[in-house]
Simulated assay, not measured.
Amino acid sequence: MPVGSITRGTTNTNRLRRVDRWIAEQPALRHAADPFVVDLGFGASAVTTFELAARLIRSRPDVEVLGLEIDPARVRTAREQLDRTRAGDGHFPAGLPVTFGLGGFEVPTPDARRPAVIRAFNVLRQYDEAQVDEAWRRMSARLAPGGLVVEGTCDELGRVSSWVGVTAEGPRTFTISLRRSGLERPSIVAERLPKALIHRNVPGERIHELLATLDRAWRVHAPMSVYGGSQRWIAAVATLRHEGWPVIGGPRRSRLGELTLPWDAVAPV
């Protein structure tokens, strides 16, 4: 039996563009001997699985994507969508390298093939915090050597997003990605933190300190808004780096509204 519980299945076109863009740049995909990717828990519509394949194929033309769902009805719907795509009906190429199957955190794959990347988005948000470590362990145990689980959540339109990068050795990175236009304060991401962190945004926890520091830097650099939200975000991230936060990546990633840190910088105390 598939391991896990059926989630609400909410999905939306272009909702996961931020995390997909990040995955496309990761060595786990770009340098994989077998660029096989699993989209775990794609929801009531398979559109974000199709989008994942369409985005990743630009980095790895030989990528293959398997969408997994614990709900058999959703798998049937996804396969119907795929049949229509194969027939040339839709916005995606007929030959897009996508398949669908039934499965949960055990990540069943044809011939026990090991994924280079597993994307599990807006899945654990509906679980208890105590269940996170076991889910991470199950998924990461299925990875190919050097593989990566990307687990996180986002708002309905994909403008506020955060995720954890998990390897077979455990969580390694934490990323925030925000739409800067109209952004009042970066700590809006508190509503969309991964399950491992969402209840930890309280005084004394590292994630609380990070968001408070980021909000302060965002306010300090308000005059940079005349040059655009990206320039203001770049300046805010540079301030965090100057204050000793171990920011991963340079201005190119900041320009996209991203901030990535080692997991240890935000891990629960």
Rank of each mutant, 00 (worst) to 15 (best):
R15P: 09
S230W: 13
F174K: 07
R216L: 11
G41W: 04
T10E: 09
F100R: 10
D133H: 10
R86F: 03
S181G: 05
E106K: 06
E69Q: 06
A87I: 00
V107T: 02
P72T: 02
T175G: 04
V63F: 06
I176T: 05
G90M: 06
R74C: 02
L193P: 15
E156Q: 12
V266C: 07
Y227S: 13
R142I: 02
G67Y: 06
E243Q: 15
Q231V: 01
K195S: 03
P108E: 03
A217K: 06
S177L: 02
R252H: 09
E258Q: 14
D111Q: 13
G101H: 11
D89F: 05
T109W: 12
S5Q: 14
P61N: 07
E106D: 13
A94F: 06
L211E: 07
I207P: 13
D71P: 07
F92S: 03
G104T: 02
P194E: 03
T175Q: 04
T239K: 14
L16G: 02
T239W: 11
P93T: 01
E25G: 12
V38D: 08
E184I: 07
F42I: 01
G152T: 00
V132D: 08
D34P: 07
L178Q: 12
R159F: 05
F105E: 02
G104Y: 05
D111A: 11
A53F: 08
P61I: 00
E169R: 15
K195V: 01
G95R: 15
R232I: 02
F174L: 02
D89S: 08
F105Y: 13
P194I: 00
G41Q: 05
E51T: 00
L259G: 03
R15T: 01
V202T: 05
W218Q: 08
G244K: 10
A87K: 15
E258S: 06
M139Q: 10
G257F: 03
G41Y: 06
D264W: 12
A73F: 08
I176R: 11
A265F: 09
N14W: 12
F42N: 09
T173H: 11
S177E: 05
A53H: 12
R180P: 09
G165L: 01
R216I: 00
K195G: 01
R55G: 03
A46K: 08
